[in-house]
Design a binder for these strands. Sequence first.
DNA 1: TTGTACGCGTTATCAT
DNA 2: ATGATAACGCGTACAA
Lengths: 338, 338
Amino acid sequence: MEAVTIKDIAKALNLSTSTVSRALRGSYEINAETKKMVLEYADKVNYSPNPIALSLKENKSRTIGVIVPEIANNFFSQAINGIEDVANKRGYHVVIFQSHESYEREIKNVQHIIARKVDGLLISLSGQTENVSHLLDIQAKKLPLVLFDRVSEKIEAHKVVADNFDGAFKATEHLILSGRRRIAHVTSPSLLSISQERLMGYKTALEKYQIPYDESFVKYCGFEPEEAQKLIFNLIENQKPDAIFTTSDRLALDCFSALKELGISVPDKLSFIGFTNLKVAHLLAPSLSTIVQPAFEIGQTAAELLVDLIEKKQRNAEHLKTIKIPTEMVIRKSSDLS
Amino acid sequence: MEAVTIKDIAKALNLSTSTVSRALRGSYEINAETKKMVLEYADKVNYSPNPIALSLKENKSRTIGVIVPEIANNFFSQAINGIEDVANKRGYHVVIFQSHESYEREIKNVQHIIARKVDGLLISLSGQTENVSHLLDIQAKKLPLVLFDRVSEKIEAHKVVADNFDGAFKATEHLILSGRRRIAHVTSPSLLSISQERLMGYKTALEKYQIPYDESFVKYCGFEPEEAQKLIFNLIENQKPDAIFTTSDRLALDCFSALKELGISVPDKLSFIGFTNLKVAHLLAPSLSTIVQPAFEIGQTAAELLVDLIEKKQRNAEHLKTIKIPTEMVIRKSSDLS
DNA sequence: TTGTACGCGTTATCAT
DNA sequence: ATGATAACGCGTACAA
């Protein structure tokens, strides 16, 4: 009973496939009655065009590929939300791949995704990615490409990012204005663009208030389970910060956990601000002020741009651009974490 | 430079497309030299077959559809992780749709996914889904179908779930054995299979220790932001429980948050256990003992089963089965949440 | 061993 | 206004 095709309709109605096709897409001049008949019958038998045949014909898959480091990461799952939102509205499928923060897997994903003939690619770089030749390959193939969130200076491409500099600047400034001076910065691997941009914001804020920059107050933390704990203990014991600016839910939570073990009270001894998304962070760490990451909007914007690129709807789509999505600061005043 | 096809190779090598095709798939008897030549050339020009053409020919998309309530939910993102893990290994794409806990959107997703000609469907039901006729439609179309985590009694199909009864029983028993008697149960909407199964586990444990079951100690909580808070305040003030058994990260965190506002200490006045995944929960709520949800394994198992169904590799795939994945209990002893 | 021809579902082009 | 045909890329039955 399945898979009713144009051919079936044509046969049933004693028409040619071309007539049916025209009737279905309404376009060409066609006898109103014939058209009506076809439409009714098609509706009755629940006809829907075979997207695979369409793809073959148009040499398009109406699919966009997405490569992210980790789907079970609040930032990326929200970003994917935004991507799917736009993609579905505009008639595209989304296929998702994870690099699991591995450069090699990222390359494999890129190859796989190219072989699968997606119409365009959205990518957020792994924590290990330094070389971007796999992305240059994509550009060489004229495959529409948009980098989001974790981008690279080494490639000229369309990019959608959060305004990390501004967010980090405001975060640091907020801590300074609360009277803190020994402000530590616990952040993601130094290879990442987001780390670099945030570090610049942090440094610039220190400069503005003439607080000397001390490298030992900045800790880059990878994705291994144990890594953060050690590093944070170390930081707190040696540098004795009076504030910490962290850059993700995970790092913020790791910090809180460490502080709890050390019996250090927040925000009395330590003041906090982080780049986070998670409501969880707010719920359990009421003293954590936050620079809200515009994950959903980044996803939406990146997808919108990519689809425009694919469909060449934007005249100025050819000239590269980097879109910065603003962040929002949420200040928490409660002090009842203990 | 793109899109090199069999035809191109044939032309370049002065062969027919069929010869090239045969050489590529290695199968048929073919001159060893010709074969080698073709393979080398194909490799050189970086040939890869057009999956869309394949799909059209075989009437298969090598794509599986997944419908979940919400991707930005730790349980489901981990489950999707498991699904992708298996799917990619076995050469399938995964397309993900979200019902956002809405019955209507779930139906639309199902329709859309059918029109897109996926080879099979994995679904976890929305919190509103009572009627499953959209799933019966799928079965009528002979489209392989596997339900996971949130399933329904109203449809006979392959199902993969956590052992919710067992987990809930052990959770409740643990609280009882710690000396608690006024054990509340804060859980997801009563429509959901997981809620029902867990309630049974809870009840059975109470029975075993001859603690009378009091309906007012069970609170079903939907997905609206404010809902949980009110309900929990109400529960604590009226029923004055000495323990709470919750069934998700979100609900557990909402409870902790409410308790903090009420100034109730954990675990002195209240003891806790929850069905959770999140490391976050452990980090910030050391007093929260946990029944670990086997999200990743559920995803893997469901995907494995679905692909088997699609490829009919399993002889006994025809006869329906429900696979239960065991849960694991992690007891936290710390009492330093305050 | 290799080449020719067809079909998968659709639309565009060129008749009629 | 409508029908016949080619084409998208591939695999394969059949012919040579």
